[in-house]
Design a protein around this nucleic acid. Structure first.
Lengths: 307, 307
DNA sequence: GTCACTCTTGAAAGATATTTTCGGCTCGGC
DNA sequence: GCCGAGCCGAAAATATCTTTCAAGAGTGAC
């Protein structure tokens, strides 16, 4: 067979280049679940729900359990980043062992309308912690490193985000400014595009969108991409349209959402972690200039504080 | 085949009745080593020495590595108490994962200039998780409940915050607006004071300041306090000046900060948790009107997403 | 409403890996 | 030197995993 004809294998590599995840499996399932088909979701659910049990099953067994076929099971394994089911199974065994040794995760139920306030606090804190852990586990450090390098050497940086992601964009911008970089956040789609036209090679454009399909954010990134700027996407959907124009994709994980817990809440937590990582990474690379800049900005603010 | 003739399978079950060992594998190897033949010892040695590496090998691979045959590998697996090599391999993967996780990375140390990017991610995630846990534990649910009640019944709500806290203020405002409340965020000290003058009993003013001593935020809160509005402070310093004019104080915890990790980073995490708690609390209290409003805002945004 | 199209799905063929069989081999005893 | 007991690996037999392929479900255009 010629390589021209892509076999199903290469069809849509779940997360390109990412080596199989050991403990980041649950995170990956949550991240990729939305982009899965129904049957594959059933498989992913079973796998995430009972790693130990599934590790004991053969392809056929798992297919029967989930009411699907062997092919679907293998496809799911591929989507999760493993070469095949065999490797997924191995990772599953590892995960089971870890859970066994670790303490009970204390699975929380969803937030209900009549939950006492103390429960709300506990559940929210738990969920956000979970989001942090998942995002950290699923973050591609190679992509992150590349993004950091681009940022550290950029002539200027534009950051796009609307709605809740707009605040994250501003947060990143604030931080970069504090260490002497030239950065702007854009929430206005028109202005964003207008400014994106000015970008060229050596500049960096960052799009922040949880859904990965926010047109108002994709458009400026596309323009920046076409002008030759280095483009970065921070998104919860690594297969979303936004990644089309992104040189580097940084994936955020998300906890389940519900009526009382809109997506904006958990996505924001993951996005901010990524932003912090970018910032610290850049601060490391530009330490010579960043350190004095940080001290200076601190000093400048001191007099605004009452004693 | 008659059952009288025992097949090799049942021939000499290593340790009778013992179910596969999860982590006690190394011990088992040592125990059983003397009773093994030379070839089997080589296999057992390889397995005990490098569980992770062996878990990645097929029967054939392990046979070649140890210079033996597949049959010997299977026999060794049987002797160690597993039904076959497949199961030994699964246990091996589990063992490897346990060893991996047991190796506690020094994430408790501070972030250094020369930390690899992966460590930065781990440390930041860990710190923010810590901040969440601490904040949740230290949050006074009575004060929180009182603040929620005030918000849910307020005529209007003003939120003050500058710098990084300004973004948190905006986040809270965005959320409250989404469920139909009247809320404004103020980053401009002058405008904040100007607006605070308009407040009266039944209104709510919220000041967000990590240091608890940001004059630009305290001033409008003082004005609101004196006009009779219900005032809330979200701060990391429960004894700071800002609490002077706060009816309810919500305390955020903060991880240690350092040169590469400015205070804004960890304080923001705790503040956002508090904000989320406020939001969910209010949404619960006003569920009848909040739920439709949330759905409506979701629907309204749908068309802004590319497919 | 109908058609054409794409995407999803499972049955079965094909490829690998594991297990079993079986006979050669070594080694110690006589 | 000859014999028997048990160890060992090559290859057959089986189980498991992977790929192919065509039918079915869903979707948008007309």
């Amino acid at each position: 067979m010629k390589e021209i004809f892509a076999s199903e294998r290469g069809g849509r590599a779940g997360s390109a280049g990412t080596p199989p995840a050991p403990a980041a499996l649950a995170a990956k399932v949550r991240t990729l679940a939305p982009s899965m088909t129904r049957s594959m979701q059933r498989v992913a659910e079973a796998v995430a729900g009972d790693p130990a049990g599934c590790a004991a099953l053969t392809v056929t067994g798992l297919a029967e359990l989930t009411g699907t076929s062997e092919a679907t099971v293998v496809r799911t394994a591929r989507l999760l980043g493993y070469p095949g089911y065999r490797d997924l199974r191995l990772a599953l065994a590892g995960l089971a062992a870890q859970q066994q040794s670790g303490r009970a995760p204390a699975i929380t139920t969803d937030i209900a309308v009549d939950d006492p306030i103390a429960d709300v606090v506990a559940k929210l804190a738990y969920d956000e912690q979970q989001t942090l852990a998942d995002t950290a586990a699923g973050l591609d450090t190679v992509q992150l490193g590349a993004a950091v390098t681009a940022l550290a050497t950029a002539r200027r940086t534009d950051v796009y985000g609307v709605g809740a992601s707009g605040l994250v964009a501003q947060d990143l911008t604030q931080k970069l400014l504090r260490i002497g970089l030239v950065a702007h956040a854009h929430s206005d789609p028109h202005l964003a595009v207008t400014n994106a036209v000015q970008l060229r090679a050596g500049d960096v454009a960052i799009a922040i969108t949880h859904s990965g399909s926010t047109g108002d954010v994709i458009e400026p990134l596309r323009v920046a991409f076409e002008r030759g700027a280095t483009t970065v996407a921070i998104t919860g959907r690594p297969d979303g349209p936004v990644t089309q124009y992104a040189d580097h994709v940084l994936t955020t994980s998300t906890a389940r959402e519900s009526e009382l817990r809109p997506a904006a809440m958990s996505s924001r937590t993951g996005q901010l972690l990524v932003v912090d990582c970018l910032f610290v990474g850049v601060a490391q690379r530009t330490y010579e200039s960043a350190a004095p800049a940080l001290s200076a900005s601190y000093e400048a603010l001191a007099h605004r504080h009452r004693s």
